[in-house]
């Protein structure tokens, strides 16, 4: 029983400490002048935090595969939603000549009307 209690506290406590350290890290990094990389770093640290919560607190690491599949399906459809909606932005980055650099999403939406 005692061993079980300390195992529960240790596993979740370490995850909690890691999450708070990452919060400190992302808070500090936001104050550095990194330009466009500020948002990249912010989202990268957020995804590490999400992974810690999902794998350790929500126990996805030790879940049966049917549950992992349900979780993966959510992420899969979310990825489709984002990629298909933002296709013209992603393409704009790839083919600068086809899309002038200053053209924003709103203008490209206007043009399609």
């Amino acid at each position: 029983m005692r061993a079980q209690i300390s195992a529960i506290w240790r596993k979740n406590g370490l995850a909690w400490l890691a999450l708070l350290s990452l919060l400190g890290l992302t808070f500090g990094a936001a104050h550095l002048p990194l330009g466009i990389f500020n948002v990249v770093v912010g989202l990268a640290i957020a995804s590490i935090k999400v992974t810690l919560v999902v794998v350790i607190f929500m126990g996805l690491g030790s879940s049966p595969s049917i549950i992992r599949l349900a979780a993966a399906a959510g992420v899969f459809w979310l990825a489709i939603l984002f990629v298909l909606t933002l296709t013209d932005v992603l393409a704009g980055r790839q083919f600068q000549s086809a899309h002038s650099q200053t053209m924003g999403l709103e203008q490209s939406l206007d043009r399609n009307r």
């Binding site: 349900a70 979780a71 399906a73 979310l78």
Partner: peptide, 28 residues
């Protein structure tokens, strides 16, 4: 647990819609 994960996946898409709106307006 399985049913709840299916619900969470739908919640992810619900908030995903708002995040997508944010991303599109922020890019513009």
């Amino acid at each position: 647990t399985f049913a709840l994960w299916v619900f969470l996946a739908s919640e992810l898409l619900f908030f995903g819609g708002l995040l997508l709106l944010y991303a599109a307006y922020r890019l513009a």
